[in-house]
């Protein structure tokens, strides 16, 4: 079954068309990469799916339900999480407090005004467990704004996963990372997303081909091809349009 599906999705920014009828199908449990040259509309596609923008035409379905135009908080509550290309953490809160906000959200603790949050033992324990899994336990009390680049990216990704979503969308998680950091991040994502559905946008072809079960190539706001990594590698259209310039 398709966990996520877009039907004839269009988007334009006051006249500037960015997406032309995207029909994307994400199968449950797969790791799916969306690739394409700069300006192909990848991030716009993410933003229309996750409620930042309202698509100008077309529909988005999540677990068979029409979610077109849902606001981000509503999507988060029905099991969709995302990370951002530009690190988007709470810079003045510590790594622990960052993750804790996600854990609180996961448990639906929102308007609790009567308990001291530091005294919620279960939440603290769960947050620390998460920090250990993502190798941030040593940075527990460091404000997110002061973390090293690699660590802050790890925090960014783990916040998307800490709410325990069924579908995770990661927007260029490896952007700006060194080789080692990228390697660690890929391992982290493999470990953390066991049994979940992941959609990534990525430029780094090594990451894409090592992580993805299936790949969708976006070109000028249209889907050029979808398929297994090997098929994509051999696809002549894709080679012409995209891979050719990158000499992969």
């Amino acid at each position: 079954m398709n966990i996520l599906e877009t039907k004839d999705l269009h988007h334009d920014f006051s006249g500037l068309k960015v997406l032309f009828g995207i029909n994307l199908q994400i199968e449950e449990g797969e790791r799916h990469a969306v690739i394409g040259p700069n300006g192909a509309g990848k991030t716009t596609l993410f933003n229309t799916i996750t409620g930042t923008y309202h698509p100008s035409k077309g529909k988005v379905f999540f677990k068979g339900k029409d979610i077109t135009g849902y606001k981000p908080h509503k999507l988060a509550r029905i099991g969709m999480g995302r990370s951002f290309q530009i690190t988007s953490t709470f810079t003045r809160l510590t790594a622990f407090q960052n993750i804790r906000l996600a854990i609180l959200a996961k448990h639906g603790i929102r308007f609790n005004l009567f308990r001291h949050v530091d005294k919620m033992k279960d939440i603290t324990r769960e947050t620390e467990k998460m920090l250990e899994r993502v190798n941030l336990i040593n940075e527990r009390n460091v404000p997110a704004g002061l973390l090293s680049y690699g660590k802050s990216r790890a925090l960014e990704i783990s916040m998307a996963m800490a709410t325990d979503p069924e579908l995770i969308l990661l927007d260029e998680f490896a952007a700006g990372m060194s080789r080692d950091e990228t390697h660690n991040a890929v391992a982290l994502i493999r470990k953390m997303t066991e049994g979940k559905t992941v959609v990534i946008i990525e430029h780094d072809m090594d990451v894409v081909f090592s992580l993805a079960d299936r790949i969708t190539v976006l070109h000028y706001g249209k889907i050029l091809a979808t398929g297994k990594p090997d098929d994509i590698r051999d696809n002549q259209d894709v080679k012409d349009a995209y891979l050719g310039d990158l000499q992969v």
Binding site: R92, L93, R100
Partner: peptide, 19 residues
């Protein structure tokens, strides 16, 4: 309280709180 934490989150990054 947990709510107070959300509040500080809004100050730092409103968009992320939404997500």
């Amino acid at each position: 309280t947990p709510f107070g934490q959300i509040q500080v989150g809004i100050r730092d990054n409103e968009k992320r709180i939404d997500y």
